[in-house]
């Protein structure tokens, strides 16, 4: 069964292109272009994994992660960022992040991480 993935990134070109590539590999992908939109998507959909950008206008990725872990603790979150901050990294892991990847990601590593994140979510 296809992994249901939510990509959250304010860089529209990046999110759309990544979405196309992951769909070609069998993922069932939805895209949200900001933190607030991500929350709406999470509330209205049922996702296995969320791939989340950190720095976004308005609600940040860390804010979304915090909210998701409070309301949907089963949702597995992988963060992807061009913003190299150890503080964010540590804070995200403390909240319950599955993995932190840097932009631009190695695509094969990204696919492996998303699949293992989904498996980890199913095992509870």
């Amino acid at each position: 069964m296809a992994i249901k993935l939510l990509i959250v990134d304010d860089e529209k070109s990046f999110a759309d292109t990544l979405s196309q590539r992951l769909e070609l590999r069998g993922f069932n992908v939805s895209v949200a272009y900001g933190g607030e939109e991500a929350i709406e998507s999470i509330e209205s959909g049922s996702f296995d994994v969320c791939l989340l950008d950190v720095k976004m206008p308005g609600m940040s990725g860390i804010d979304v992660l915090r909210w998701a872990k409070e309301h949907y603790p089963g949702l597995v979150v992988v963060m992807l960022t061009g913003y190299s901050s150890e503080t964010d990294d540590q804070e995200a892991h403390r909240i319950g992040l599955y993995a932190f990847l840097r932009k631009p990601p190695d695509f094969n590593e990204l696919v492996r991480t998303l699949r293992s994140a989904c498996d980890a979510g199913k095992m509870g």
Partner: peptide, 14 residues
């Protein structure tokens, strides 16, 4: 620039 490179990387990958 990290974002630009990420877009180029994914577009080339696509």
């Amino acid at each position: 620039m990290k974002n630009h490179l990420a877009i180029i990387n994914e577009t080339a990958g696509l």
